[in-house]
Design a protein around this nucleic acid. Structure first.
Lengths: 232, 232
DNA sequence: TTTACAATTTTGTTGCAACAAAAATATCGG
DNA sequence: CCGATATTTTTGTTGCAACAAAATTGTAAA
């Protein structure tokens, strides 16, 4: 689960401004599951962690909060969100609409090389699962999905989907180890790749929607088990 | 077209922090068409305009830029976006997916009082159109649509839709005067309200999708006329 | 042990100055 | 008049200190 901070890209103090760099770093940490749901983030702590001053750290936190990747638990308390069942359901509903659209449009532009790249990503997912490296499996899974989304050539759409993944990322990492061994998504991914080869947009969409629904079902179950366990 | 700044709510220096207040103000100005596409915004100018220091002004600009309500035209130049045909088409595609979903879900929770409120909003649209107050008509039109979206009880979805309106808002105001007199949307709105009364989600969705497509067609035409006119 | 309250520490916000870089403007040659 | 270049001005960024407010810790009474 834990990801070593050293594995994350360092801040390049020249190419972009520090606020953007800090934002990118935080985003990667959130998606990689470095922070658990409920984790509290402070301007000064983030500044120290990323070795920048408070201004860029504050920029990054504010930006993530405005995207709902972080949420306010109090007037001076931003935390990694703990999704309840209702929020999880809403985000899933939006994911079905947006990712379904992206998947369908992907079929309009796909070329054989793209499918080859996808197969390579799927191999990485499989070997991570075999080795029990679930955090890596989740990361490669994310790359697989976004490789498809980018085929749609709709940049606004991709970035909107990204904010959704940012919101559910921490909960995924918090709950997934318990059932990642069930080899999530492998079948849906295979179907999606076949459909892409045939440029069958409706089938790509169906496969990706299935993948979202499967993940939702598992997350929901794990969420319930958590709730009953903590209630005792 | 022009909206007097005095009509916009002033910043309340107590309830919320200045950055949020500045953000809200700028958002309203953008949607109300105070700034035209291409307008350049600077930290110091916004600070002076809103009577705050540079820090909250910078916060607001950064936040709007990260939502693509403003875009970078150069490393130190943020402008109100000028949408090209491709961007307009992409945003319309996303709007169809998200607003269609919201419209359909609205039918699940609507009560008779909601439809009454919608009819009242529609009256305001009509009288604004009659009086030639097109900016007001656009504003009430926006309120009509969001009154429906809010019925869906899906706050994440509503805020995502809001970012889309923020992106097209300036272009709408820039192009609409030329054909607002055609009484946009009246029929679609009537159909939507009838479908809401019958709690017929599919029909609400269809009506709202029609409205989006109608608006898109007109915007696209106006966009083309602009392009050919400026090419001469 | 738990609850309510007081003391203390931590925290986000705000404004500002300095700096480097970019944009705007002026200048000049054709 | 136009285009390229040099100059001036404007601009975003960054770091920081002060402040008020919130969160935390400590304390004591029940």
């Amino acid at each position: 689960m834990a990801v070593h901070v050293s594995e994350l890209g360092n801040i390049d103090r020249a190419a972009e401004n520090l606020g953007d760099a800090a934002y990118r770093q935080m985003k990667e940490r959130i998606i990689r599951g470095v922070y658990r749901p409920g984790h509290k983030l402070t301007v000064r702590a983030v500044a120290q962690e990323l070795d920048v001053s408070t201004t860029p750290a504050r920029d990054a936190i504010n930006r993530l909060a405005s995207e709902a990747a972080l949420v306010y638990a109090g007037p001076k308390t931003v935390v990694v969100p703990i999704l309840d069942a209702k929020a999880l359901q809403e985000i899933t509903l939006i994911r079905l609409a947006l990712e379904g659209l992206a998947a369908q449009q992907a079929a309009e532009h796909v070329v054989p090389e793209d499918v080859k790249a996808l197969r390579s990503l799927q191999k990485q997912i499989n070997s991570a699962l075999d080795a029990g490296r679930y955090a890596d499996a989740l990361w490669h899974n994310k790359e697989f999905h976004f490789a498809i989304f980018r085929l749609a050539k709709l940049p606004h759409l991709v970035s909107m989907i990204e904010t959704l993944w940012l919101r559910i990322g921490p909960s995924l990492h918090d709950l997934y180890p318990e059932f990642a061994k069930e080899r999530f998504g492998v079948h849906n991914h295979e179907v999606a790749m076949e459909a892409l080869e045939e440029r069958d947009g409706a089938s790509v969409r169906a496969a990706m929607e299935n993948d979202i629904r499967d993940g939702y079902r598992r997350l929901r179950r794990a969420c319930r088990e958590r709730a009953t366990a903590s209630a005792q």
